[in-house]
Design a protein around this nucleic acid. Structure first.
Lengths: 169, 169
DNA sequence: CCGAATTGCTTGCTCGAACAACTAACTTCA
DNA sequence: TGAAGTTAGTTGTTCGAGCAAGCAATTCGG
């Protein structure tokens, strides 16, 4: 909403001193940059507890929901199966996760957080809160809501396109 | 089946049909998801011309600005030096780019788009236009402006946090 | 002028992520 | 029951991206 005024000339509102590659796909480009720096920041914060960006989502899910099938993790994280396989293996190697075969279905592996990982939980939750605070900074609740709506709209647009492409195939 | 299957009818799928991991850091999470699908879509489109997401930015810069130092590419793409090194090497191997040492400064390599790459230019520009269209879908100009402003704000917030962290060090 | 930063680029390592292809373990159904 | 199909998980490969080192050319300061 706001001013619907596009005459601000300086369309590159995000002139945070970063370079711009022409002005091709302004929104796409902005998504690109926001995503990159967001992930970078998450990575910097998570590194302090020995996790890599992405792994924290998996751990949080395990902490919240308890032991579950790897396929559930794949679905809920909306990740590729191979990504989850390897991520879980690394977390296992790091001692944060334990895997066991399902007694009822020979195909599935059950993944669960180890007691050792519990010490991380508080730290990771603090990090996520910090990251969120840095992301929204001084936006008030209404603004945050608007941002969420905007991101949701982008996601819906992209999902629709991706889906129609997939159907083509 | 049945047995201890995780409650299948869970309400997790609530929102956009995608999984949600609790509601930790809603905005962060939304950024995460938008970024992922955006990159996925870009990758699907670019794959048709033999590029990987990220490489197109480099090529577009070369097409727009002509031969330039690798360090300039690094700065303008806001990428890591190693990333650019390897990306340029792959593009060189693919025949889209040529490298030559600077005659005036023994440290620098000049990168330029090859004539062969020119055939890609139209295709890549079409792809970016398509991607942008898919991203914004049916938003009117005012809305797009608002989205850009929002993303710019997020980027500024994140950049500020990242910067202050860097200063700490 | 010469030793000390700085700059430009590269290699080594790790990780998330995507696609492809494959195995093993269920399900379905004719 | 048994062949066909589906589901779960794995490995192989490629790529962007990050950090850490390291090397060589150039610039800076005493």
């Amino acid at each position: 909403m706001s001013t619907t005024n596009s005459a601000d000339g300086d369309a590159a509102a995000a002139d945070s001193g970063r370079g711009r590659v022409s002005n091709a796909g302004p929104v796409s480009h902005a998504i690109f940059r926001v995503a990159r720096i967001h992930k970078l920041l998450a990575g910097q914060l998570l590194r302090e507890v020995g996790l890599h960006p992405g792994q924290e989502l998996l751990m949080m899910r395990l902490w919240d929901e308890g032991p579950q099938r790897q396929a559930d993790l794949t679905a809920v994280l909306d990740a590729d199966a191979p990504t989850v396989t390897r991520s879980v293996r690394r977390l296992e190697r790091a001692g944060f996760v334990r895997r066991s075969p399902s007694p009822t279905d020979g195909r599935v592996t059950i993944v669960e957080a180890t007691p050792a990982s519990m010490g991380l939980r508080q730290a990771v939750e603090r990090i996520w809160a910090d990251l969120e605070r840095m992301t929204v900074a001084d936006m008030d609740d209404g603004r945050q809501d608007g941002v969420l709506r905007t991101l949701g709209e982008l996601e819906r647009n992209l999902t629709a396109s991706e889906k129609s492409r997939a159907d083509d195939r």
